[in-house]
Amino acid sequence: MSKTNINENIVESLIGTTIEKKKSRIPARLDFLQSATGLFLAVFMIFHMLFVSSILISKDFMLSVTKAFELSFLFEGGSTIPVFIAISVVFAVFIFHAFLALRKFPINYRQFLRLKTHSNLMKHSDTNLWIVQITTGFALFFLGSIHLYTMLTNSGNIGPYASADRVYSDYMWMLYILLLIAVEFHGAIGLYRLSVKWGWFDSGDAKESRRRLKRVKMIMTVVMLLLGAMTLIAYMKIGYEHQANYGERYTLSSNIGDK
């Protein structure tokens, strides 16, 4: 009789424990990663919003921000490769986060019914926020993917006119309105959830800390939505004015003065 090396996964899936009869550490990693990827995406979204809203200051400013991402300070004219890589990373994290979050979704009729009834009956704000969270999360599967794919294939086409054309002439504004709402709710609630989940900013009086966090979350949602809406309007306006010259790229006004 001889022993073959056993496959760890087979043992765990059959027995429920590892060969050493211990619980797997994977659930701990997954829980941590769900939070970590969420945190990454939320922080990314805050900066993303700040960058795109640079258009509110001026087209030049927006372009220079874009160029900075294309690392124009390193080589002449910049390159789209860093942007492509950045988007790829975000896309990957996004998919992974969605994959991890799926574990928490209601997955059959009975679960769905029970959750819905539960939240309707109970009228508990954090529970309702989570319903918002899964609804927006579900929407983001599609909205986010479309946007990310578009940007991946157009990583060179980011700029005051390029972006505005996309928003207006390519009819992306419809997607962006939904995306904006979904992201801002999902992100702010997510950050709030992370804080209470891990006990960050817990000053000893957990209830009071949570009240404060909730206020911050509310302010964040409102500010980001406003900022997003204004930015979107700004692009719409530029796109509308620029529709005749669709495809043309913006250059810095201090250069040759394409106006």
Binding site: K23, S24, R25, P27, A28, L30, D31, R103, K104, M122, H124, D126, T127, L129, W130, R193, V196, K197, A206, K207, R210
Partner: peptide
Amino acid sequence: IGDDDGIFGCMSLLACEDH
């Protein structure tokens, strides 16, 4: 409690705490 039926199943919606 080291699994999704234990601590990692909790989503921190905290209706428990509130009620």
